[in-house]
Write a protein that binds this DNA or RNA. Structure first.
Lengths: 340, 340
DNA sequence: ACCACGCCGGAAAGCGGTTTACAGCCATGT
DNA sequence: ACATGGCTGTAAACCGCTTTCCGGCGTGGT
């Protein structure tokens, strides 16, 4: 391995001078600067990140805790999109992304804060991490710059970003009502993630606002999975005809897709028999014609990244709480309700 | 920050002893061992990865170059699945994953090898990286343990893994022929990625084997994107009726989905009018009823991870070249051809 | 001619661990 | 009584880079 000492020797200067040149400090004469640069190139020198990190306490690395609520990992199609733009923004500023493995080693020190400190990351991104994680509070307390998505984790240097979930839910309900629906059911999640909670809130507020009929049986749980959505829809379809909703608001597209499958299996057509509206606008949604509320995923990634950069670069920065607007995407699973 | 010196002081031992305890070396008495462990717990000590990495030349990190041929980044739905199992296996062994940002900084030293060395990664995973990348050879030469997926990058410590693309293509062709098709077109990629190339090979070999008719016009390019598949299909549909294929083998599901869209836009039904078979079995495929050749993605992730671990742990290990079998998934976009 | 000052560049002390060489101690064998 | 040897544990060098403190040198002012 080539070190700055090798370069120093060849250039007849001290390692300190090499370091100065490499970091663009001003107090080096043009002549030495050029000589050092030339030799650096010739030798194909590559600074060692660990050594630099040790000396500067800066790793140019963002730690990412990425977890799917269900199948923890890289599969959830919605979070990918956020991640992509996040990565691009961070990359543009010179940061690489470190994904912490979620398999815990036996006996390994665990907890978010511990792992972040261990790797000396400059900032942390929490993506798809459930609020129920026991060590969340340690992270907040550790004072490491941190941005979460869809998780209201707030601390001295920790902010978060959510879509306007309640507003989006109300957009969905507005549209259903506009299309003539009044008996509207809800498929949400039992664990009350922040988005799940807020979407339920929007549902309930809309019920009151439009003075819609309500039944306890219309609130079902799909826990954001396709299978869950299927089960929930089956329950709704099993209701006696006069209690059956004419439309269902699903708090997530995967659940909506499950619900659509359940309908087809029952010989019904989504839209014609019961209308379905989803939330997220995952990439599939387009292919199955799902009407849904879109989250602006690229925007979310970009803004999260910029907020985190701010938090890292300016310690006095007060932690941001950001809300991103949603958008109604009309496809074919919501049809006008013909009042019988 | 708490260091081993702090612990050493509190335990009245030397830092060396603390290090021994922490790393499970045998030559420490039971009594001191327990004392040190207790204090470590009490103080919530977390070792510093950079310092350790500097001293041991081992980072417990796998560098990942992850690039979509088209939209470089996290969006390609197929690679996700591989990544997930890869991450899980690696996590189980104590490795975290470092994703190199692909945005290159102006003036930054670039090249795969340089970045891998810079971050001192123990191994490298190449995922979705095109063969055309200029600095690929430097990586191979650097002697860093490396596994690639769908990229035939071979070196003293670099192996790769591919699906049996040629075999899979032949599976697809077998099935089409079995379903009565003889005029079969191909949608592939212009840039000749390894999978694209091998699938074309399988197509051509099948043509000969079954003595099928062939036309230059039946080989089209979609470059693995949905839009590309759409364009290619449009070209095929524009052929005079007697030249139009009855089935199309698409070298990737995204292209197949694009092709299906093109058909629908032309007022045709995939399967009934022209049969379509894809390759990959991405998650969407199920929802749109696409008949396709499945790659065993989980298997690919696991095997890639295990191979890389071997390469890392045993320097004398000769680099593996792995092939994973494929599987025909029958859905609805291939229908029996009624020979007129 | 002398002093002060500004500009360059060097020496050396970290950063937080690991590891090698070695020293102290106690029990054992002769 | 003394050499031998096995256990423990210590001192100190080292990994590669940053950064502070400081000294030397050349220049301009007086």
């Amino acid at each position: 391995m080539i070190t700055i000492y090798d370069i120093a020797k060849r250039a007849n200067v001290s390692p300190a001078t090499v370091s100065r040149v490499l970091n663009g400090y001003p107090d080096v004469s043009q002549k030495t600067r050029e000589k050092v640069q030339r030799i650096t190139e010739e030798l194909g020198f590559q600074p060692n990140a660990a050594a630099r990190g040790l000396a500067t306490k800066r790793s140019w690395t963002i730690g990412v805790f990425f977890q799917d609520h269900v199948n923890s990992g890289f599969k959830h199609p919605f979070l990918q999109d956020i991640l992509k733009t996040f990565k691009d923004v961070m990359g543009g500023k010179g940061y690489d992304l470190l994904f912490f493995a979620n398999h815990t080693l036996e006996g390994a020190q665990d907890g978010f804060a511990a792992r972040a400190r261990h790797r000396n990351v400059d900032g942390v991104l929490m993506l798809g991490v459930p609020r129920t994680e026991p060590t969340l509070n340690t992270l907040v307390g550790a004072g490491i710059p941190c941005m979460s998505v869809d998780l209201d984790l707030l601390g001295p240097r920790a902010g978060y970003l959510c879509s306007d979930n309640k507003g989006g839910a109300m957009q969905a309900m507005d549209y259903l009502v506009e299309m003539g629906h009044r008996r509207i059911a809800f498929i949400g999640d039992r664990y009350s993630t922040k988005p799940g909670h807020d979407r339920l809130l929007g549902y309930q507020e809309s019920l009151q606002r439009f003075k819609l009929p309500f039944s306890q049986k219309w609130i079902t749980y799909g826990d954001f999975t396709e299978e869950g959505g299927m089960e929930a829809m089956k329950q709704l379809l099993a209701l006696p005809m006069e209690e059956r909703p004419t439309a269902v608001f699903c708090a997530g597209d995967m659940m909506a897709i499950g619900a659509m499958t359940a309908m087809r299996e029952a010989g019904l057509t989504p839209g014609d028999d019961v209308s379905i509206i989803g939330f997220d606008d995952i990439a599939y949604a387009k292919y199955v014609g799902l009407t849904t509320i879109a989250q602006q995923k690229e925007e979310m990634g970009t803004q999260t990244a910029n907020a985190l950069l701010q938090l890292i670069e300016d310690p006095s920065q007060s932690p941001p709480v950001l809300t991103i607007g949603t958008e109604l995407i009309v496809r074919s699973t919501v049809q006008r309700n013909v009042v019988g």
